[in-house]
Amino acid sequence: MSQDAPVPAPNATTASAGVDAIEWRTSDTLIDYPQALADMEARAAAIAAGKASERVWLLEHPPLYTAGTSADVAELLDPRFPVHDAGRGGRYTYHGPGQRIGYLNLDLGARGKDVRNFVHHLEGWVIDALADFDIAARRAEGRIGIWTDDRDGREAKIGALGIRVRRWVTLHGFAINVDPDLSHFGGIVPCGIADYPVTSIAALGKNASMARLDEALKRHFPAFLARLRRCPTGVEQCETPR
C-alpha cells in the first residue's frame, strides 16, 4: 500500500515547478525492483512530454542487488539475492528492508541541464538530512556517495547514489542505510569499493526511524531544489561541484 499525493492532471508542465508542485510519494510496503523501475521510467517519460508533475518517491525493496552500467561481474561475490540490471550509472549495489530508497524524477531542463551539479547537490541534500541525526556525513574525493566515520573510527559508506538522465529528466536517486542487515552487502563489492565498510544510522547508535529520516529529507528538500535552480556549474558565486 502507498501513501500517494493526488495524481497530477494530464498536460501539467514542470517548467517552473516549485516545491509545492512536486509530488511526494511514500510506499509503506516492499516494492519489487522491476515494478519500481517500470513506474519510474513511465513517470520520467510523462514528465518529459509535459504530461505529469515531477516526483520524489520514497520506498524500500526486498533484498536484491542491482548492476549499474559499469558493473564488473567479478564484484558479484555471492548472488544470494536476485540481481537486476538497473540502467543507471555505477556498479553493484544492495537494496533491502531498512534502507530508504529515494527515486527522483526531476526536470533538469528547468534547472540548468547540469548533471554534475545535480549529483553534487543531491549529495549535499542527503548530508544535510543526516546531520539532523547528529551524523557528520561528507563527500569523499574521488568516491561518489555519502561517507562518515563508524564507531571504530573507520571511514564507512552510509549512502549510495546512482543517477540516469533521459531527455533531461532524472531517474534513480539515492539509498540511505537506516537499519538494514549489513551482512547482505557481503554478496558484492559495494559500488566497486572494497577497502571501506558500510554502516547505517542504527549501527552508529542513532535513532533509526524511517519516518524521522523522511521528515528530515522533506525538511531539507526546498534548499536542495533552490540550489539546483540558482547554482549551475560554472557560476562564480556557487560552490564548485566535485
Rank of each mutant, 00 (worst) to 15 (best):
A136F: 13
F81K: 02
K218M: 11
F81A: 04
A12R: 15
Y65A: 05
R55T: 15
H184W: 10
R143W: 11
G159F: 12
H220Y: 12
H220I: 02
A136L: 11
Y103P: 14
K113T: 08
G98S: 08
F221I: 02
D149S: 07
A211T: 13
I158Y: 01
N207P: 02
T13I: 15
G187W: 15
M1F: 02
W168R: 14
P190Q: 03
A137G: 08
G98Q: 07
A226R: 02
A86N: 02
A21K: 05
R139E: 01
M1D: 03
T29C: 15
A211S: 12
A160F: 11
V169W: 03
A86C: 01
C191S: 09
A74T: 12
M1A: 14
S16P: 14
R229V: 12
A12Q: 15
W24C: 04
A17Y: 02
A74C: 10
R242C: 05
V83F: 06
T93Y: 11
T66P: 01
G192R: 00
A42P: 07
A49L: 06
M40R: 07
P63W: 01
V73T: 08
K51V: 07
A52C: 01
S70E: 13
R219F: 10
G187A: 13
N105W: 06
V83K: 04
L217W: 00
D4P: 05
S27P: 04
L106Q: 07
G89C: 09
D85W: 10
Y33T: 04
E123W: 08
L104H: 02
F224K: 13
D107E: 09
A131Q: 11
S16C: 15
L228I: 00
H184L: 10
R167G: 07
A45K: 05
P10A: 08
V7C: 10
K206I: 01
H120Y: 07
R111G: 09
I47N: 04
D114I: 10
L59Q: 05
G89R: 10
N11A: 13
G109L: 13
A137K: 10
F221T: 02
R227A: 08
